[in-house]
Design a binder for these strands. Sequence first.
DNA 1: GTCTATACGTCGATAGAC
DNA 2: GTCTATCGACGTATAGAC
Lengths: 202, 202
Amino acid sequence: MTLPEQPARPRGSYAKGVARRQEILDRAIEVFAQRGGTRTSLRAIAQEVGVTHAALTHYFGSLEELLVAVYDESSRRPGDNEYTPGEVTPAEMMRRSAEENRAIPGMVQLYSTLNATAIDGNHPAAQAYVTERFADLRARLAAQVREQQASGTLRADVDADLAAALVIAASDGLQIQWLLDPEVDHAAALRLLDRLLSTPES
Amino acid sequence: MTLPEQPARPRGSYAKGVARRQEILDRAIEVFAQRGGTRTSLRAIAQEVGVTHAALTHYFGSLEELLVAVYDESSRRPGDNEYTPGEVTPAEMMRRSAEENRAIPGMVQLYSTLNATAIDGNHPAAQAYVTERFADLRARLAAQVREQQASGTLRADVDADLAAALVIAASDGLQIQWLLDPEVDHAAALRLLDRLLSTPES
DNA sequence: GTCTATACGTCGATAGAC
DNA sequence: GTCTATCGACGTATAGAC
């Protein structure tokens, strides 16, 4: 739900040009979706969006903030399946989310780029966003693990927080391997992890 | 082992300035180790190494190839524990390797940067290196999994190749989460995965 | 308030002098 | 074999047109 009061605010800004900003963001998302994460300079994006590169910095402040906005918006959009019902297993939830991202060509690259940007210091906005996203995701998955441990679906002898971090890490890492070598079966490996985490059929 | 005949060859080059190249590479490794992966422009590295940036491109061709050379050399160096004995479990092997990398400050960032570089297309040298490294690692781990399945240490009902990809992915993904939030326990999560993969104590 | 034009410093890469 | 000089492109910052 994330609070119903939230029309279309730019996140941190004091409402600059809300409508126009959204318009530009929509175009930028299309651009990122079509081309891969490759060749994404501020100027190239601006040209395809149809504005000057200075207009982008006007609305987004910097390239890293634009990347964050594009990823955030387009990851929030597709199925609105944040807060999925608790019946699916944790790895299955990551699998579905990753599958949606993989349907959009540039998305996985954008995600990896964003992670690398966040990692290397000197990019506080990206770092804050990615760090918070990981923390949220871990908390949500851990809660789900605890639920399903209580209902007997998942093994009770695993630490929920560790399992949450493990499932996220597995999904992210498998996506990278899959990008470099499509023979790596992201879905099958996550299904394996799910099976390892579930209670033995005894 | 990787063939004993290999004195110090630059990898793909036709022997430009072998000794001098190695000298520069050694210095570059120290530089990467000390500072984080941050602030690593070709010119900055050159300045600290004590040459001009043109000299670096002379020996390494491009920045991406320098990154590959630095990572390759310094990951091969520390414990020479490629091809570890088969007694340790797969996740334990990744855990040890990651621990060594984490002891060198800039190493984890360099690894992530390299992965991102390989992913985004337009960097064929990095892509080829990382792709091959993943394939090698998967093959080695999968063989190890099969061994330990035969000896009864690991569960026999998991696909060895999937398990190998899963363990590598988990280790890589956990390192990223750990970099952004040191509370994420890389070693503990890998130990959990190891336990999930091992045969039930029945 | 929106956006363009423009300039600044730095980047990776290359050509040619020495 | 290494450096100087130079290139086009990059992200960012600012001044001012509308």
